[in-house]
């Protein structure tokens, strides 16, 4: 095992500067989300400025919002909601989807047919609409949001993983494992998973972007994270009144979302590639 590891480390990897920048921004937001309470200059809920929609000043780096609260502190705390909820939802969606997808691909038969049909049908409900319907039915809270977002993105993850697994499943090495007498567990875990894990992780990243966008959209409509808490989408909503003045309070949360999603995309499109022609 140790020998195997060494040989893989010996392989060269090509790093792309765009990917590195993407990684740095993603890492920045991850750190901010974790350390927000330690860094935030003001308590999130405290009104610190007499003026509302204040401009960027030395004291309030990102201006103040419609109540005169410090935007920098709110953005930092908002990162917790946006990143945290999205991450939880996407992890849940991908875990469920990938597990079901691989199982369906390997077992086939009616299990595969029924599950695929059902999840395809679920997938044909536009995602924002699904969010609206659930919030209308159950009301909005953080656990409900996570569960809803996970349900919305499970069919996609399932479909993706299943398609990959079906391809791998037709490979002769899986047939060889079958006629060797291996069980379904070994085939899924040892033969199929290692061959689809790369694309699955990249897909998880893309899906994370979609979840962030959907969560922000729902919050923007007032159906996501509820006051007094606020994620970035909710901040755009509560400060939309500042739009005619071009207040930083409207612009900054949007930019925060864009910086996160675009950098995740940059990272995924430019993951370190293994160099195959090492024989030089």
């Amino acid at each position: 095992m140790a020998a195997t590891l060494r040989s893989r480390l010996r392989l060269g990897y090509a790093l792309n500067p765009v990917g590195v920048v993407g990684f740095c921004i993603v890492a920045f937001w991850a750190v901010m989300a974790l350390a927000a309470p330690l860094i935030a200059p003001h308590p999130v809920g405290e009104i610190v400025d007499f003026d509302y929609f204040g401009p960027m000043t030395r004291e309030f780096w990102l201006g103040t919002d419609y109540l005169g609260r410090d935007m920098l502190s709110r953005i930092l705390m908002g990162a917790r909601y946006t990143v945290g909820i999205s991450l939880a939802a996407v992890a849940l969606a991908c875990f469920t989807g990938v597990t079901l997808g691989m199982t369906a691909a390997v077992t086939g038969g009616w299990f595969d047919t029924v599950l695929s049909r059902f999840l395809d049908a679920l997938n044909s409900i536009p995602s924002k609409l699904f969010g609206l319907v659930v919030v209308a039915g159950i009301g909005s809270s953080i656990p409900v949001l996570i569960a809803t977002l996970a349900v919305i993105y499970t069919p996609g993850a399932y479909r993706f993983a299943r398609a990959l697994a079906v391809n791998v499943n037709t490979m002769d090495f899986v047939t060889v494992a079958r006629v060797r007498g291996e069980g379904t567990g070994h085939i899924i875990g040892s033969e199929i998973l290692p061959n689809i894990i790369g694309p699955v992780l990249a897909d998880l990243g893309l899906r994370f972007v979609f979840v962030v966008l959907l969560l922000s959209g729902l919050s923007f409509l007032g159906l996501g994270v509820q006051p007094p808490d606020a994620d970035w989408g909710a901040m755009v909503r509560e400060n939309i009144g500042g739009l005619p003045f071009g207040a930083p309070a409207v612009v900054v949360p949007s930019l925060a979302i864009a910086s996160l999603t675009i950098s995740v995309n940059m990272l995924i499109d430019n993951l370190p590639r293994r160099i195959r022609d090492r024989s030089a």
Binding site: A3, T4, S7, M171, D172, F173, T175, V176, E191, P194, N195
Partner: peptide, 16 residues
């Protein structure tokens, strides 16, 4: 099988 490319799991070392 005919095609060693698809008959060997590309994610596993020869020893495995």
């Amino acid at each position: 099988f005919q095609l060693a490319d698809t008959a060997l799991n590309p994610a596993k070392a020869v020893g495995e």
